[in-house]
Amino acid sequence: MSIERETPGTGREAVHEGGGHETVGNGEHVGGSESGRFRGSESGKLGMWLFISTEILLFGGLFLLYAMYRLKNPADFHAASLDLSRFAGTLNTCVLITSSLTVVLAVFSLQRDRAKDAVRYLAVSIALGFVFLVVKGFEWAAKFEHGLNPNASFLATQPKGVMLYFGLYFTMTGLHAVHVIVGMTILGIFLVRIRRGTITARNPTLLENAGLYWHLVDVIWIFLFPLFYLIS
């Protein structure tokens, strides 16, 4: 027994004997002509979550290195962490958390067909991302001034644990900053597309997925913050 019915907007739902319950995107069934038509929101969401799990493991490799080197050099890591500004780190944490709130509110507004609010919230989120990068930039500049960047002659005189700490610090916060920049770019594209009306309450999935990416960037920072700034 197989029942099929057409549900406009959400794609075709097929309830079938062996396969249980699956939602199938309409547009995705036509290779090559999917543009402009509604894309299966369920597929997009699953794909995005799969991508997020790859990002977790990408940073995971760095967390693995961090764990091993910190376990081997606990005292050096503590000493090195005192060179970071806790104030700057805390400020940036609050900035990213707030930007996550504004992104989720942007998605919420778009789903309720309030495009103007969505655009406003996205603009705030991008601005907050920019603040984060500026604070980060000042922190990095200070480290360079103190000769704590990799290959600096002053760092070479420090204990090995300190060198590793700063090597990891620059790599991990640097990779994170790249993700912030990518996230801001994506949010910017969506801001424009919402203003142009190509993303509306009828197809919010793409913005939802962009939001997922931004939250992921936030979550990674939530771990980076205590691991680098709060070592006691």
Partner: peptide
């Protein structure tokens, strides 16, 4: 998905440890 990714990472770290 997320629990799997985190569990896998935990195992990677544990075995390396």
């Amino acid at each position: 998905l997320i629990p799997i990714a985190i569990a896998l990472l935990a195992i990677f770290i544990g075995l390396t440890y």
